[in-house]
Simulated assay, not measured.
Amino acid sequence: MNAMTALELTPVWDKTFPQSDKVEHGKITFHNRYGIELAADVYKPKRVPANGRFKAIAVSGPFGAVKEQASGLYAQTLAERGFLTIAFDPSFTGESGGSPRAVASPDINTEDFSAAVDYLANRTDVDPEGIGIVGICGFGGLALNAAANDPRIKATVASTMYDMSRVTANGYFDADDSAAKRNEMRTQLAKQRTEDYANGDYARAGGVIDPLPDDAPQFVRDYHAYYKTPRGYHARSVNSNAGWNVTSSLPFMNMPLMTYIGEIENPALLIHGEKAHSLYFSKAAYEKLEHGVNPANKELLIIPGANHTDLYDNLNAIPFDTIAGFFTRNL
Rank of each mutant, 00 (worst) to 15 (best):
F92Q: 05
F92P: 08
F92N: 15
F92A: 07
T93G: 01
T93H: 06
T93R: 04
T93F: 03
G94W: 06
G94F: 11
E95A: 02
E95V: 01
E95M: 00
E95T: 00
E95N: 03
S96T: 04
S96M: 04
G97N: 11
G98K: 06
G98T: 09
S99N: 14
P100D: 10
R101F: 02
R101G: 04
R101W: 00
A102M: 05
A102I: 00
V103C: 04
V103L: 06
V103D: 01
A104K: 01
S105D: 15
S105W: 13
S105H: 15
P106F: 13
P106S: 13
D107I: 15
D107N: 12
I108K: 13
I108F: 05
N109I: 03
N109T: 05
T110S: 14
T110I: 10
F113D: 08
A115E: 03
A115V: 02
A115K: 02
A115M: 01
A115G: 02
A116Y: 06
A116D: 06
A116L: 09
V117G: 08
V117S: 09
V117A: 09
V117K: 12
V117M: 07
V117P: 09
D118C: 03
D118E: 01
Y119Q: 02
Y119W: 14
Y119R: 01
Y119P: 02
Y119I: 02
Y119H: 08
L120R: 02
A121Q: 11
A121S: 15
A121F: 07
A121W: 09
A121D: 06
N122V: 03
R123W: 13
R123T: 12
R123M: 13
T124K: 11
T124P: 00
T124L: 04
D125A: 13
D125V: 12
D125E: 15
D125R: 13
V126I: 08
D127I: 13
P128E: 09
E129I: 00
E129K: 15
E129F: 13
